Simulated assay, not measured.
Amino acid sequence: MALTHQEILNRTHAAGIIPVFNHPDLDIAKAVVDHSYEAGVRVFEFTNREKNAFEVFKALRIYAEKYPDLLLGIGTIFTRDDAQRFLYAGTDFVVSPAMLPEVGAFCRMKQVFWVPGCATLTEVYNGKVLGAKLVKTFPGNLLGPAFIKAAHSVIPDIKLMPTGGVEPTETNLKDWFSAGVHCVGMGSQLIDRKEIERGDFGGLKHRIALSLDIIKSLRK
């Protein structure tokens, strides 16, 4: 049974961290999901950045069914057609790197949880108008925690997720969560491509566990 938007919103908040990852090798993608889950991840974003991303995601979606409490979404969606393809493949949510009305309108029609990437207050507001319950502030390293505070000062009910430049350190995470983020997206800072390609997942699990512990302490 499909989750409501509020249920997905609750789960993304509880998750704290959403790993953002892509790889053309299905076995590596499966291993990343496995080790991330073991470390405590419950929401995962696979991105549409490789030529075979659709095929890998389809297989990964089936594979991830062994984790009934894991949400698996698709990121880097620029077009309505791509949103439609991945929706048929079973994505739990759709993330765009930009504020794309065409994608937003499609997701709203299909009642799909959509997360637009926004870099201005106008884009954040337009995303909300299009039905987004969660907005990705991107690129996070350029906008910074100050943007989160500024957006909340005028749109206090919007939920924001910085992605890009978020680091698995106490200092960085404290800056973001003190600013009022809903959760954070983490890519290369969390998942070291060279590590995982040589089969070393210890660093990944350590960074995830450390980050989750930090977030838990910040939310007390």
Score class of each variant (00 low, 15 high):
Ile158Thr: 11
Ser211Asp: 10
Leu130Lys: 12
His35Asn: 10
Glu38Met: 03
Gly117Gln: 03
Ala53Gln: 02
Val95Leu: 09
Phe46Glu: 00
Arg219Gly: 01
Ala53Asn: 03
Ile17Gly: 10
Phe113Trp: 11
Arg193His: 02
Gln111Thr: 07
Glu38Asn: 08
Asn10Thr: 09
Arg198Asp: 02
Phe138Ala: 07
Ala151Lys: 06
Asp175Glu: 14
Val94Met: 05
Thr4Gly: 12
Phe78Leu: 15
Cys118Leu: 02
Phe201Leu: 13
Leu134Ser: 04
Asp34Arg: 04
Glu38Pro: 01
Glu195Gly: 06
Ala105Glu: 11
Leu173Phe: 08
Met109Asn: 09
Phe21Tyr: 14
Gly90Glu: 00
Ile214Asn: 07
Ile17Thr: 09
Leu160Met: 09
Val124Asp: 00
Lys30Asn: 13
Gly73Tyr: 11
Tyr88Val: 03
Gly16Arg: 10
Ala132Pro: 09
Ser178Cys: 03
Ala151Trp: 05
Ala59Thr: 06
Asp82Met: 11
Ile214Tyr: 04
Gly202Asp: 12
Gly117Trp: 05
Gly104His: 15
Met186Lys: 07
Asp157His: 14
Lys174Tyr: 10
Cys183His: 01
His23Ala: 09
Thr47Gly: 06
Asn22Thr: 13
Thr4Tyr: 05
Leu100Arg: 14
Gly131Leu: 01
Thr76Val: 03
Gln189Glu: 12
Asn172Ser: 13
Thr169Tyr: 14
Arg42Leu: 03
Leu212Ser: 04
Cys118Arg: 06
Thr122Ile: 10
Lys136Ser: 06
Gly165Val: 00
Gly16Asn: 12
Phe54Pro: 03
Thr120His: 04
Pro116Trp: 13
Ala39Glu: 11
Thr76Asp: 05
Ile191Asn: 04
Glu50Ile: 01
Gly185Arg: 04
Asp81His: 14
Ala29Thr: 08
Thr163Lys: 03
Ala98Arg: 11
Trp176Asn: 00
Tyr88Met: 07
His182Val: 03
Ile196Asp: 08
Ser36Met: 15
Ala209His: 10
Gly203Leu: 08
Ile208Tyr: 01
Leu134Trp: 09
Lys159Trp: 09
Ala83Glu: 09
Ala59Gly: 06
Ile8Glu: 01
Leu3Gly: 04
Phe86Gly: 00
Leu173His: 02
Pro162Ser: 10
Asn10Asp: 11
Leu130Ile: 06
Gly104Ser: 15
Gly180Asp: 07
Met1Arg: 07
Asp157Pro: 09
